[in-house]
Amino acid sequence: MALKSLIVFVDPSPGGAARTRYAVRLAAEHDAHLIGVFIAPTGWRRNPADGFVAGAVAVREMVERHSLFEREAAAGAIKNFEALAGRERVTFEFRSIEANNSNELARLHSLHSDLVIVGYPSPGGLPAQGTPAAMLLATGVPFLIVPDSWGRDGVANRILFAWNASREARRAISDALPLMTTAQAVTVLVIDPTKNASHGEQPGADVAHYLCRHGVIATVEQRQSEGKAIADVIREFATYDGSDLIVLGAYSHARTREFIFGGVTRSLLRNITVPTLIAH
């Protein structure tokens, strides 16, 4: 499936601007429609003293002050988004969500896109209590997390795909295939291959052949963890390889009624230094 509808959660910060530029470049490369979503802040949380305001005139002035703050925040966000999106030949639109119902509305908007782009650290444009992990589990839509400190111009030119022969990793292939087919190089990284019988006789070879049949320029690299955390091995290889995107399937398991991500996924999401696409 091609990438034709992208969502980027924006905010009025330098990281938000960098995230928008990233999303615009990605939309331009894939001829995709870009939707900017802004969680409009509520002025009611800014001044606890407002709770003690008394008198009709004072209350009216307080309401007007907060309404003005919210309107100015939304106006500033759409101005910044349109200025950045207008630099490329992409179709785009802007949507503003009220903070009071932002979790459900953010989920709803995400459901109707091919890829959602957010920032790191959290909330990265998402609602205050939202996380990419929770949104991924709630929607099934892949999330691409761009660290606020990311400054490279390229978008998904050198992709590192963490392959462990799992259902989640296979899902990540389907979600990231449009990016892989346009990348200059894709490295299939297999860690501790002999410890996982699911890889078959030649760990990584079968999936690399599969990707190549789809036009992906793929190579296989095998690494031993040698006691290191798997997440650290992935980060170190990304640095060594000059990767500008990490792709992985986010493993999770149910604990009572809550879904908990596996250790490798949690570790990677705690410290994102390279744009990372997670699928589930």
Rank of each mutant, 00 (worst) to 15 (best):
L144T: 05
I145T: 08
I145K: 02
I145N: 03
P147G: 08
P147Y: 12
P147S: 13
D148M: 07
D148R: 12
D148F: 06
S149P: 05
S149T: 14
S149V: 11
W150Q: 04
R152V: 04
R152L: 04
G154A: 15
G154S: 15
V155P: 01
V155K: 01
N157A: 07
N157K: 13
R158C: 09
R158D: 12
I159S: 03
I159R: 05
F161D: 01
F161G: 01
F161P: 02
A162H: 10
A162I: 06
A162P: 03
A162G: 05
N164M: 03
N164A: 03
A165H: 09
S166A: 14
S166M: 05
S166R: 03
S166P: 05
R167M: 01
E168S: 12
A169Y: 02
A169T: 03
A169W: 02
A169H: 03
A169D: 02
R170P: 00
R170W: 03
R170M: 14
R170D: 06
R171S: 02
R171F: 01
R171A: 05
R171P: 00
A172D: 11
S174Q: 11
S174T: 14
S174M: 14
S174E: 14
S174N: 13
S174F: 09
D175E: 13
A176T: 08
P178Y: 03
L179H: 04
L179W: 09
L179D: 04
L179M: 13
L179K: 09
L179V: 09
M180C: 07
T182D: 02
A185W: 10
V188T: 07
V188H: 02
L189S: 06
L189M: 12
V190F: 01
V190K: 05
V190H: 04
V190T: 07
I191Q: 05
D192W: 11
D192Y: 12
D192I: 06
P193A: 09
P193E: 05
T194H: 10
T194R: 11
T194G: 00
K195W: 01
K195C: 04
N196W: 07
A197F: 12
S198C: 07
S198K: 15
S198R: 15
H199P: 09
H199E: 12
H199L: 10
G200A: 06
G200N: 08
G200H: 00
E201C: 00
Q202Y: 05
Q202L: 12
P203M: 06
G204N: 02
A205I: 03
A205G: 03
D206N: 02
V207F: 04
A208I: 01
A208G: 02
A208K: 02
Y210C: 00
Y210Q: 10
L211R: 01
R213W: 09
H214F: 08
H214Y: 10
G215H: 11
G215M: 12
G215D: 11
V216P: 07
V216T: 09
I217E: 06
A218M: 08
A218P: 00
T219I: 10
V220L: 07
V220E: 05
E221Y: 13
Q222W: 04
Q222D: 01
Q222C: 09
Q222R: 15
R223I: 11
R223E: 14
R223H: 11
Q224L: 15
S225F: 09
S225Y: 13
S225N: 13
